[in-house]
Amino acid sequence: MTPMTHLCDIPAAVKGLPRKRMAVAYGEDAHTLQAVERAVKEGIVDAVVVGGKKEITVTAADCGVDTKLFEIIDVEGEMPSVKAAVKLVRDGDAHMLMKGLAHTDNYMRGILNKETGLVPEGGLLSHVAVFEIPAYPRLLVLSDAAVVPLPTLQQKVAITKYAIRVANSLRVEMPKIAFLSASESVLKFPSSQEAAILTGMAVRKQFGNVLAEGPISVDLALFPEVSDIKGFKGRVRGDADILIVPDIDSGNVLYKAIVWFAKAETAAMVTGTIAPCILTSRGDSEDSKFYSIALGALNA
């Protein structure tokens, strides 16, 4: 089973699977409807768009989207739309959730609600990004660059497990995980020591079939020539599939540096929920939205 190496491998894989149903929370804007239209037309998902029927119809007409491609559930207002879309997923009437025009805060609130939301008991809401980087020969998984601000060790364990599942969905059977820090030496601050502990857990097979190294700097994790120069002998050296970051700041900085400096294309989703939740923003490219929906469908 050869691992996927391009983001377009994701929709290709999804097309071969039974089609999943995606609930769109407050899908009243053109960006959302166009993304939905493409995903449905390319056979990635079936969609049910929740929002004001009148607004949806008018917007679709304005931007040339055919409303016959998806179901519409008529709900007025942002928060009620989010709640209704979340309920569809919770009740099993949809397999995944997409954020439409709703503000991220409201979307997350709907997902996190203890009684009506999508995070199971003991679960951790987290974020996984997948990059296709021209300069790197593998798809690269990064977590958590957007949701958990200062993960505890236990939270890093959960974050790592979700990232492994996503890597497995990309057909990476034995993911190589780099627990990132500023240096590969074990130093006397928590993130360095936690990286050492997480690596120990991986060596003791507590994460299943993986290879892991940490603490390890990002250059040693991604570029073999750096390991050669430094004489670094690690279980992971220049060939990481998954990068686990110490905190959200390093994660977000790395995410954006990869997108803007390394010219990467991305797919991303929220994990730790009973079903994948897509969290695209207006800044994302068309392809990024499409690949994110495909990633969600692949993991639904």
Binding site: L153, T199, M201, V203, R204, Q206, G214, P215
Partner: peptide, 20 residues
């Protein structure tokens, strides 16, 4: 035990020392 758990700090020390 040979696995690492937060409930047993000496297992965490062991993992750190092994990496060192």
């Amino acid at each position: 035990v040979e696995t690492i758990t937060e409930k047993m700090p000496c297992t965490e020390d062991a993992a750190i020392i092994t990496r060192m």
